[in-house]
């Protein structure tokens, strides 16, 4: 298996070209990332005062979905002890309550998107709670999922006609227009968007190879893409060790 990083955006969204693999392997990785890589999220909320318009359970639900920066070392559950952090908040209206106003006991655990509105308060409305964040896995609740991963067969554009390449560059609404020197070489490495596909008269110009995949990992913010891949390795190793142990028992 060969992995090549194609692009990385500011928010961490990374595209890879993975060659020499198959859908079943990639799907295993996808499911492990979504279900088994642990992150922190608010788990229990003790609401002391809530006179806002949202019910306590709605509020707790919203808090649970807030994305918290997670320290990878704390993630893995050791000796059945889950790592927990308390976040407290006390505000009085009128104001919009933002996630960044929560005070965390651990400076390493904080809401990534500080401007996430939790609730709006009017005059004389108060909100006070203690929320406990804990590590967990995506299979328990989707709020623990660190990323979205998806893949497709890597589309190789194969255009030999310069006029056709020019036409596609003209029809592409997004990226291809940015290719300043519209050379064949550039268009052949250009990532396909629906606009480009519309510009192609037939599918003969798109080639795929059996073992080459375009993989995208879009992290939500708890962990960086690098950390997710690192954790993916640990998680799959642990699972394989467990399997080996069980098989030995049967023998």
């Amino acid at each position: 298996m060969e992995i090549k990083l194609l692009s990385k955006k500011e928010d961490g969204t990374s595209k890879f070209l993975i060659s020499g693999t198959s859908v079943s392997i990639l799907n295993m990785y996808r499911r492990l990332i979504v279900n088994k890589v642990p992150t922190m999220a608010i788990d229990t909320v003790e609401i002391i005062e809530n006179s806002s318009a949202l019910y306590d359970d709605m509020l707790a639900h919203r808090l649970g979905l807030v994305v918290l920066k997670t320290d990878l070392d704390a993630c893995f559950i050791k000796d059945n002890q889950r790592y927990t952090v308390d976040l407290t908040l006390e505000v009085e209206g009128p104001c919009i309550v933002f996630a960044e106003q929560m005070k965390s006991k651990d400076p390493g655990v904080f809401p990534i998107h500080g401007k996430t509105p939790i609730v709006k308060l009017l005059e004389n409305q108060k909100l006070k709670f203690v929320a406990t964040a804990a590590t967990g896995e995506g299979k328990e609740h989707t709020k623990h999922s660190p990323a979205l991963m998806y893949y497709e067969k890597y589309p190789y554009l194969n255009i030999k006609d310069a006029k056709k390449a020019e036409a596609i560059i003209q029809s592409c609404p997004i990226d291809a227009k940015k290719l300043e020197d519209s050379k064949l070489k550039d268009i052949n490495t250009h990532e396909l968007c629906p606009g480009c596909i519309g510009g192609l008269e037939d599918d003969n110009h798109i080639e795929t190879k059996d073992a080459d995949y375009l993989v995208t990992i879009e992290p939500w913010g708890q962990l960086t893409t690098g950390e997710i891949i690192e954790a993916l390795g640990t998680v799959s190793n642990n699972l394989l060790d467990e399997l080996a142990k069980e098989i030995k028992k049967i023998k």
């Binding site: 919203r62 979905l65 998107h113 509105p117 879009e218 913010g221």
Partner: peptide, 16 residues
């Protein structure tokens, strides 16, 4: 009543 914290379908945080 208020914008959902995450997209209901793909889980992307959108409220901010």
């Amino acid at each position: 009543m208020i914008i959902p914290i995450r997209c209901m379908s793909c889980n992307k945080p959108i409220a901010h």
